[in-house]
């Protein structure tokens, strides 16, 4: 008697754990399928278009580092405390500038590593969107992104980043940074067309090798 009782309990335990485990699993998988099917049908309704990757183009020769792009982004997207979706960097040596946010990469490392699937790459234009509602704040993406696009806020305990003002774009407006740039140093468009720009590059000296994530940006470097 004393021997058989613990076995029964252990089997029950095994069963219980199995049921609970598979329930948790199916919930997780089911949820992600739901999300996927949702985006799938949304993309399908746009007549199964192929991705036309869009990207930013930044002209170092035109930029005067007024930081209006930053301010416009901050005002439009209500940056969470401690985050900077767009940064304007200055070179000490050559007095060149770089306005940088998310490059909406062709091979986005954030999408790959995020354990909760908070990142999605939009089917129609390749915009990488982060869903802060799903984010658990593990910071794995901060290591994975070579451009430091994902930004963490200690206030909210979660990541947020540039989403290319996709809602504005869906309403026919330009991204806030581009719309407000006074010198037209920052523009955007279809990446394939931007790539044809004279003297355009996808890497500056000292910046990450573009092979890592294939960033969707074009930089026109400052002439010496």
């Amino acid at each position: 008697m004393e021997f058989s009782k613990p076995i029964k309990i252990s089997r029950r335990h095994v069963l219980k754990m199995g049921v609970m485990g598979s329930a948790a699993l199916s919930l997780g998988i089911f949820r992600s399928q739901l999300v996927k099917s949702k985006t799938g049908s949304a993309a399908g309704s746009v007549a199964a278009q192929k991705t036309e990757q869009i990207g930013f183009m930044y002209d170092q020769q035109k930029c005067v580092a007024c930081r209006v792009c930053q301010a416009a982004c901050k005002a439009t997207n209500n940056w969470e405390e401690g985050t900077e979706w767009r940064r304007v960097l200055t070179s000490d040596k050559s007095k060149a500038y770089l306005s940088i946010s998310c490059n909406h990469c062709e091979k986005p490392a954030c999408v790959e590593v995020c354990p909760v699937g908070a990142y999605t790459k939009r089917e129609k234009d390749g915009i990488v969107i982060h869903d802060a509602e799903k984010c658990i704040g593990c910071k794995y993406c901060m290591y994975a992104c070579p451009y430091h696009a994902p930004q963490f806020s200690d206030d909210t305990g979660r990541i947020s980043k540039c989403h290319f003002c996709y809602e504005r774009q869906d309403n026919g407006e330009d991204p806030a940074c581009v719309a407000n740039c006074p010198t037209n140093a920052l523009t955007y468009g279809k990446l394939a067309e931007l790539r044809e720009a004279q003297g355009g590059v996808d890497q500056l000296e000292g910046l990450p090798n573009p092979e890592l994530t294939k960033p969707s940006w074009v930089i026109i470097p400052k002439k010496e």
Partner: peptide, 19 residues
Amino acid sequence: GQGLTKPWLLIGLLANLSS
């Protein structure tokens, strides 16, 4: 960052099989 304040988000940890 949000593991304790929003524990229901943790179920999402099973979501991305490429991670």
